[in-house]
């Protein structure tokens, strides 16, 4: 099976200039890979650096050292060193991301929030909306909410809109940052199903799940982030 992500020798620390330039090491020597059709889960306690690793793979955080190779069609892109425009393109074609919190776009309806990644990839707006509608229905988002901006939704509803937005595309790499954190059991089950479907489609997934049950249901491997703990 094709490898989609190879992370090697990755390190990261924060320099807090507002606190007198104190350096906060996060991780170092991070090595792992993710194959197509596989869901790899980053494990470890809070503060171990799971989220930082995930964000580095997405390009959201910069890396201090090492490589993050992501297969983009016939090419490999090193996210750790790629220029910003390359990362923008990579996000369009290859890497999807389901964040913990929805970054609300003012005035955009839930349906369009979900459809937007498809439209950005050149899919006809009507078709994108119908796919978004299907997914929202599956995640039990009441239809009356589709036309409303999600800013006023409950936490769980926002999370489901966010999940739908992340799962609606067919990105070959999907990063999952606690997609089930504030969901009830029924909706957690839907997300687990969605992840299984993605696996069948050969999507490589890297995720963080605090919920033991969900983790057990979806994880093919767990990478223990404690092993990459940087010395303070």
């Amino acid at each position: 099976m094709a490898t989609r992500i190879v992370v090697s020798g990755l390190s990261k620390s924060f320099v807090m200039h507002l606190q007198g330039g104190v350096q906060l090491p996060v991780v170092q020597g991070v090595d792992f890979s993710v194959d197509a059709g596989e869901c790899v889960v980053l494990g470890g306690p809070s503060g171990a650096g799971k989220s930082s690793i995930l964000k580095m793979v997405y390009g959201n955080y910069g890396a201090d050292g090492g490589q993050i190779l992501v297969r983009d069609g016939e090419r490999l892109v090193d996210v750790a060193s790629a220029d910003p425009r390359r990362i923008v393109r990579l996000r369009q074609t290859t890497i999807g991301y389901v964040s913990q919190f929805l970054r609300v776009v003012p005035r955009v309806s839930a349906l369009d929030v979900v459809a937007e990644p498809l439209v950005a990839r050149g899919i006809d707006r009507a078709l994108a909306r119908s796919r978004a509608r299907e997914l929202l229905a599956r995640l039990n988002v009441p239809e009356r909410l589709y036309t409303l901006p999600p800013a006023t939704f409950s936490g769980g509803e926002q999370q489901r809109v966010n999940v739908a937005r992340g799962f609606v595309t067919d990105h070959p790499v999907l990063l999952l940052d606690e997609p089930t954190a504030s969901l009830d059991a029924a909706n957690r089950a839907v997300v687990v199903d969605l992840i299984r479907e993605k696996k069948k489609q050969g999507v490589a997934m890297l995720g963080i799940f605090h919920d033991e049950e969900v983790r057990a249901a979806v994880a093919d491997r767990v990478v223990d982030v404690m092993a990459f703990r940087a010395a303070a």
Partner: peptide, 12 residues
């Protein structure tokens, strides 16, 4: 990248 500069700013 806009979100990197905002989420992981380097300069003081």
């Amino acid at each position: 990248l806009t979100d990197r500069v905002l989420d992981d700013p380097r300069e003081p």
